[in-house]
Design a protein around this nucleic acid. Sequence first.
DNA 1: CTGAAAGCGCTAACAG
DNA 2: CTGTTAGCGCTTTCAG
Lengths: 338, 338
Amino acid sequence: MKKITILDIAKELDITFSTVARALNDHPAISVATKKAVRETADRLGYSPNKVASSLRSGKTKIIGILVPRLDVSFFSSVVHGIEGVMNENGYTILLYQSQESAKQESKGIDTFLRSRADGIIASISLETEDNGAYDEIKKRNIPLAFFDRVPQGLDVPSVTIDDYRGGFMATEHLIKAGYRRIVHINQYRNINIFNERLRGYLGALKQYGLPVDESLIIKGDFSLEFGRQCVRDLLAEGIDFDAIFTLEDFTAMGVVQELKAAGKRIPEQVGVAGFANEAFTSLVSPTISTVDQRTVEMGEEVAHLFLKLLKQGDYYKHRPEKIVLEPRLLVRESSSR
Amino acid sequence: MKKITILDIAKELDITFSTVARALNDHPAISVATKKAVRETADRLGYSPNKVASSLRSGKTKIIGILVPRLDVSFFSSVVHGIEGVMNENGYTILLYQSQESAKQESKGIDTFLRSRADGIIASISLETEDNGAYDEIKKRNIPLAFFDRVPQGLDVPSVTIDDYRGGFMATEHLIKAGYRRIVHINQYRNINIFNERLRGYLGALKQYGLPVDESLIIKGDFSLEFGRQCVRDLLAEGIDFDAIFTLEDFTAMGVVQELKAAGKRIPEQVGVAGFANEAFTSLVSPTISTVDQRTVEMGEEVAHLFLKLLKQGDYYKHRPEKIVLEPRLLVRESSSR
DNA sequence: CTGAAAGCGCTAACAG
DNA sequence: CTGTTAGCGCTTTCAG
């Protein structure tokens, strides 16, 4: 099948290719008759506009790059789902790249977007990212950029996040109100803003309700299920007094629940548990696990809308960047209802 | 920041832009000294190659389109994760499109890929897709195309699937071997190949082990958790005799488990349960649910490799298309271990 | 080893 | 309302 261009259509109709181009773009100064004729022959010949050529000429690709740590984590795939839905409705296509939580891969992704001349970039940084060099480059080239959830520190850019402080606060406050007093918090050791915020929220709630901060109740590790189990084993072995556990992530909470059950502790009577993320399993396991919902799809839609607004306004780095903060949703379930 | 092109580099070094182009592409007939000089000034000036221009000229975009029903389903996001990983290593970038299970959106996605001059397309069809018109168009244009999991019927194309018949067979066989005799199968009502295969597998196992097929034990609906509950309520209300339930999907199995527990039936002693998909929650709920793993990430990697092979061989529609069928993995858990 | 020149398919300014 | 013309930034022959 020979590739059909506007020139072929022009020859067929004995007009010039620029008339064809205008007709196809629904230019006002083209007669209805010509437009109709052009469209018909275009269809008949099986014409497919070459976006590469038009992008080169116009300088607009209608492509936006999305950079996420990894797509096999439901949080990120949900957000991408939300972004794609909105951007698609607005005529944009998504170029997808996974950083695999590696700073090097992340730079490669941004470079790919830059070479591809994406009209904009939406990202959530990797755990490894330490400096913002790659993102500065985007800014330098005046390409619109927005972040969701994991926002680089010290870079003043538009973003959509949930209020992780509030999330940590709400979960802890709920545990306190349920009568728990010695609340363990399991966090992680890296210096990631959103995770630090959850810890701050935990501390804020303790303070507001006049509970002492006990360093032995704050544990740092990773957010695996196994680490949750480990923590419970350690707490019990060391004979530390506690009556609730709030983890920074649901999988950790799941591990906590498993190990508490294995140790014969009754949930929620003896120990209350709350997680974070609203993973699908939290509402299916027994006991169902209280958690904080991050409104993932909405987050994607919000960042897409924010982005479209940015694209419309032009000079992307002159206005003060808009930072949307979504209110998390506390989901009280069996694991903390006593 | 002015946009830097190879011409700027050429001027800077007082050579022609074609020499610069060759140097950047590591052409063998360019002196090492020139290459070095070119690369240094390219870096210094902040040159970023314009992929749009090179694509237009070369006819290759190094982009492949991935069309999936939706990304907020862990099955699809895992596969995409697998595909992206492999394609990325091989210098390809992913253009992502969600059909949202709509045939119309699906056509739009393919059209977008065609206009974007993607070097190839990988897809999994929507539930709604009835005719293959949109895919014929891809074939007509001699663009490589491969499918995973949901393959259109009557279109002879490369694909990677799991052996759904085997999956249905394995799950049913396992239940039979565990001593269950009146095994209910919950499937769905649409005419989707992979789901029909699971049903066939169920029937095949019954036959092989000399068990009668009882139509009242085969139920068709959707694959929601709620439908699973509904089925159990109906089975019990109608007093139908059964001792195991094999569902085409894990969420349905979850509903089945919940309702059986609510009705005071002991799992697996009185009723055995098996699902399909290996959703994360199946290993976390109580009892843990036996299921069939679909090897999602591998499926993505396989289809990517198949695709790269296709791209290499050229004439995409002359060879007999390769159809890779992965063996599913039966995961026996508590819900069927008696 | 390097240069000159053509052209990929389209957009858009200018001319009529 | 339509035609003419000039590129967008690169790849790729053909020369030298």
